[in-house]
Design a protein around this nucleic acid. Sequence first.
DNA 1: GTCTATAGAGGGATAGAC
DNA 2: GTCTATCCCTCTATAGAC
Lengths: 205, 205
Amino acid sequence: MIIEEPRKPARTTTEEKILEVARKQFLNKGYTATKTRDIASLAGINLALMNYYFRSKENLFEIIMSEKIDELFTGVLPVLNDTQTSLEEKLVLLSEHYTDMLLRSPGLPIFVLNEIQKNPERFGRQIRFKTEVMRSEYIRQLAEADPNNEPVSHLITYLGMLIFPFFMKPVMQATGALREDGFSAMVLTRKQLAPIWMKNIIGIS
Amino acid sequence: MIIEEPRKPARTTTEEKILEVARKQFLNKGYTATKTRDIASLAGINLALMNYYFRSKENLFEIIMSEKIDELFTGVLPVLNDTQTSLEEKLVLLSEHYTDMLLRSPGLPIFVLNEIQKNPERFGRQIRFKTEVMRSEYIRQLAEADPNNEPVSHLITYLGMLIFPFFMKPVMQATGALREDGFSAMVLTRKQLAPIWMKNIIGIS
DNA sequence: GTCTATAGAGGGATAGAC
DNA sequence: GTCTATCCCTCTATAGAC
């Protein structure tokens, strides 16, 4: 009879602390500008210990990157694939999902898409776009609504409505066009409007 | 009588060659991942000479960055401020401007917005968003069309329609969802459709 | 597991000859 | 203007003691 190993709460301490710091550093500075020394010192340890847990900077980065790609893309697959919800309901769910999530992680899209662009063949494959997204219930319903619809283009349009404001956030704030709360307010209004806009565009095709 | 100095074609050679290479390197790799040694060797010279022309990497970068911000943002100000064109015409002109320009420089948006995010206070000011864009004829016409319109939000929506596909390009191609010519075709179709979509959204508000 | 110390490579910048 | 040689700092990674 096999006895399960009990959870070791000790392991959460240092290892998870490093991951936590690394997440923040990579997200804010990108891969090259992030220094292992900074991660170590911010985690309250030193370089050698960081390499004891994660063999290299690259390795640590791949772990974080994989997490973040999931956060940005893979997370919505259940919504897209749900056969119980209508197209209209999916539009609302997507808007809510992205708006709420990105208000918590405004820097996520620019980080992920920038690093993918610098290394497409390495990270691109993780996004099961062709297999998972293009064959989803969402795409099927889109084609059903109007056979002339170009599904990929429409998906990009909608993601743009939801995500692009977060690309512009630093610009808006640095130029003084929008303060922090002004930006949140705008995005929350858009959360309501985006599904309506998009429904209309789909109708138009 | 002042005699104008003749253009010195000699100066275009080395200095412009360095700029040309630096543009490509910074654009593809970002600031930190770009190495001055690479710029020099790709320009067919050496490090010392590069520092003779441009005092430092930072200095060279600021020049390129300034150029690129202009390319992405400042370039459309004449369109936005034209009192001779209708709102509808401006939508068409913006769509044409961005689509054609970004097909030539697909990596421009992600480079500029990523570097601005890493250093907002430094580069943000160059974009005269609050003073030039927000007081433009375009914004006035938008408010005229419907007083309930939220001009900033609508501008972001439209820029998203035109620019966001280029953020997704590496993802589309790495996942095999779209080949190179498939992407161009999609974007060219969108060039026609985006103004129509947007006109409709403005009507809805 | 956690540390100190250091190897080893790479990067930006400059001195100084031509 | 353009080069070679080199300084000097920073960064990643590892050896080895505790």
